[in-house]
Write a protein that binds this DNA or RNA. Sequence first.
DNA 1: CAGTGGTCTAGACCACTGG
DNA 2: CAGTGGTCTAGACCACTGC
Lengths: 262, 262
Amino acid sequence: MSSIPLTPEPIPAPFSGTAGVTPAFSPLYQQIKALILQSLQQGEWKPGEAIPSEMELAARFRVSQGTVRKAIDELSAENLVIRRQGKGTFVATHAEQQVQYRFLKLLPDSGDVRVEGPAQRRVLECRRVRASADVARGLAIRSGDAVMHAKRILSFGGVPTILEDIWLPGLAFKGLTAELLANYQGPTYAMFELEFGVRMVRAEEKIRAVLPAAEEAHLLQIPLDTPLLSVERIAYTYNDAPMELRRGLYRTDTHHYHNELS
Amino acid sequence: MSSIPLTPEPIPAPFSGTAGVTPAFSPLYQQIKALILQSLQQGEWKPGEAIPSEMELAARFRVSQGTVRKAIDELSAENLVIRRQGKGTFVATHAEQQVQYRFLKLLPDSGDVRVEGPAQRRVLECRRVRASADVARGLAIRSGDAVMHAKRILSFGGVPTILEDIWLPGLAFKGLTAELLANYQGPTYAMFELEFGVRMVRAEEKIRAVLPAAEEAHLLQIPLDTPLLSVERIAYTYNDAPMELRRGLYRTDTHHYHNELS
DNA sequence: CAGTGGTCTAGACCACTGG
DNA sequence: CAGTGGTCTAGACCACTGC
């Protein structure tokens, strides 16, 4: 299948440039990691596909298998690729999810996630708008730039549980529609990969307790004095570029936000 | 300093027992890791101290340095030890903290953590009680068993921000006093290490949005309709034994709970 | 300068997967 | 059975720390 590497690559400059203040020593495996990352970023291998075997990469980069291994170890630790013994190493994807939703940490208070099944989605809105100052700051774009804005409700077992606003860069997500958001089977982030070629790799969240505005309470069918979790998420692609701003309001009377510390 | 190992250890049984259903193959480095973990657990090396060098451990366990390395790699990834190039590998501790408070994810909305400095602590209560059903479940003990219960307020810049209830197994924390809780300089978990020999290694949190009870609102000096974050934490020692149940109420008008997803 | 962790190699062998 | 990732070794050398 995978042919002999087209570019035998002239061996990455062995060590460093001795310029500047810091010698900036960079180990070989880090350089290899950066090269693999670059290939991932450029889409040389698609999400779900296998990347070349360790031996192939070792030959391509003219280093030992152990060095490639250590590079892939780190990529694997960052959830960018997935190793499968006997089969190969695969580009990570939000489809074929290990745990249904990778970035959603809201769990039902009792019982398994698998019991309640996937969320029902009701899309209230999906249109092109101009970025407010807040949204622009989150997405690292300019105020007034075009962005896609969607609003939707996620329900579990028929109970509206999450009210979400999503903002995406207008350029990359031009063709986004309410139909896509509502009808795609599987995680929304998997749809982003498939339809827009954008892979979310990590995210940061700021969590607060808030009371709903009148409209929000109405949409979630709850009293005005029900405290909610406000979860503000910024999701990043490769190279730490922010590609999504999402603000969720979570009901926490039947569910809770679960976090592991170490 | 460190003498020649007293117990040259008869080499851990090379592989596995072929008994039972699963062959239960366990790689050498996992066995080494388990042995090191055991030493950590038994306090052979105290928090903050250096463990033997990789070469020493390799000799002690009769394996190559690379195998010890891989074992320590995992312990390091789990924050049980800390590597320092040129110096050695050290038992992790909540003192000499890398980030002030390791398990507290509440950050001020603007500005650095270092700006606002450490929290002021006011201890409201600290006494021996019998475990309720809830507390017993969290600590994996029996209802009615003796536990220490403390209640305190953490303030930042003079503003009461966190109201905490803490429950600890009565046996291990017999000598806990309000004075200890209030006056110890540094993280409370560091005090637990020093005074009680209990090292918290990881924790799980369940987060909800709630409204304060009258007394809670009064203690935090906030209106009754101020939504708060309820953070229920169970902290574990080695061998995944729960050793602390903590319930915090966080103000989130000036601070937010910060989380990283990947 | 000696001692520590960190990198890199080359080669052998093992466990798992699929045809 | 061949191919993949996973383990283990032995040895060389590098970068960092402290005396």
